[in-house]
Design a protein around this nucleic acid. Sequence first.
DNA 1: TCGATCCTGTAG
DNA 2: CTACAGGATCGA
Length: 263
Amino acid sequence: MPELPEVEAVCRKLRRAAEGCVIASGHIVRKRISAPQDPAEVETRAAGRTIERVERRGKNIFLHLTGGLAMHVHLRMTGNLEVIPDARFRPYAASAWFEFDDGRALLFEDPRGLGTLRLIDELPELGIEPLSRGFSDAALTRMTAESRAPIKLFLMDQTKIAGIGNIYAAEALWRARISPLRPANSLSPARLSALRRDIAAVLRDGVKSAVLAYSKPGGFKEAEQLQLNVYGREGETCFRGGAKIRRIIQGGRSTYYCGRCQR
DNA sequence: TCGATCCTGTAG
DNA sequence: CTACAGGATCGA
């Protein structure tokens, strides 16, 4: 479920609920999530530390702990991270939970179990932040010039730009009227500039609606609040061209686009 | 660049 | 039952 906007929404909630909290004990239930790190060691090392700061980079969450350590969480497809008021009432199926010294707990839920949680000493190198000033026309031009990959796959390559997922890649390309099949290095400066602007716009809109969706009682609902123009609309009419939205497979993932207005 | 893989849930 | 899922990694 989570792409950059949803991860950002999670982080904003955690900043209010978890910053300054002291971890009394850690409990990794689904042992694989910390591989190759030993789950028992992660539990022990986290205990006694304070969550000093919550940071998001791309789709990665870093909980900075006292002692120069950080908890690195990736939600993957179905993960969620939240603070619950009473550790004793945690869901039975939690992937992991960290009880605070006040009885509350940081809860990691993840039905599909693909998410990860590890302790790190140094933050990994990641791609450029699409909502930062560093994501400029010049930067995008420089990076795309070196890639013949289809632009959609280029956008989803986390080592280049960190945080664009399947939905927002499709939506940004639709806004910019660019075919997802176009080689990255075939786009004109004007198209790249439009694309950069539309990526930022789509993500900012996404953050807005994700923050709203997560703030509602009961937490995040799987139905995306954001108005989607192409994603998931196979066979429906494009709002711009009147042609039918197509679905193709790129890199093993579904790509939705309008063959008429995206060139 | 493709396909398989890690897992579970849901829709058709 | 099959297909698919908003992610990422690995080996062929």
